[in-house]
């Protein structure tokens, strides 16, 4: 288990200094840790708690509340397919089926080569391009099933 780098710890301290109360930086700090370590392993959570001088149990409790923190290894690119109403109405099911088929995995799983993790998501506030999905930080839509190979090809 690698330790958090000094750069990550410095960044967490910078975030803490932005707020009158250091705990306000916790979500941002957890993302710093997650981006570096890939996963919020218990040891990583413990280090965040130590840098922030917070109880480890509190940090774990907070992290477990939110959807975007990861506690087990995932692929390099996270695919989030919106399945909320506007995307449902516009055929997100077909796009999702195609993705599952092309990647050979179910929702929640990671491809054996570690390239993609597939998840469904709630409304991502881009219903003008429904059905839509995000891969990493990028939005894609309207996603037609036949475009999926081309889109996936952009992510190595």
């Amino acid at each position: 288990m690698p330790d958090l780098s000094d750069a990550a710890k410095t960044e967490i301290r910078r975030l803490m200094a932005q707020f009158p109360h250091r705990q306000s930086a916790l979500l941002g700090a957890l993302f710093v840790a997650q981006e570096e370590a890939g996963v919020l392993f218990p040891e990583i959570v413990a280090q965040v708690a130590e840098v922030m001088r917070l109880p480890e149990s509190e940090v774990t409790s907070v992290a477990s509340f939110y959807h975007l923190f990861r506690f087990k290894p995932e692929g390099r690119h996270l695919i989030q397919v919106c399945t909320n109403v506007s995307c449902l109405l516009n055929g997100c099911d077909r796009a999702l089926e195609r993705l599952k088929h092309r990647l050979g995995i179910e929702v929640g799983e990671t491809t054996p080569d570690g390239r993609f993790t597939l998840r469904t998501a709630e409304c991502l506030a881009a219903c003008e391009i429904a059905p839509m999905m995000m891969i990493g930080p990028d939005r894609h839509g309207p996603v037609q099933p036949e475009q999926i190979d081309e889109i996936l090809g952009k992510y190595v």
Partner: peptide
């Protein structure tokens, strides 16, 4: 960090306080 309920104003404040 991904939570619809954090849009509710008092839940947002809790979240902004790191909880």
């Amino acid at each position: 960090a991904g939570a619809y309920i954090a849009g509710e104003e008092t839940a947002l404040l809790e979240s902004l306080e790191g909880r």
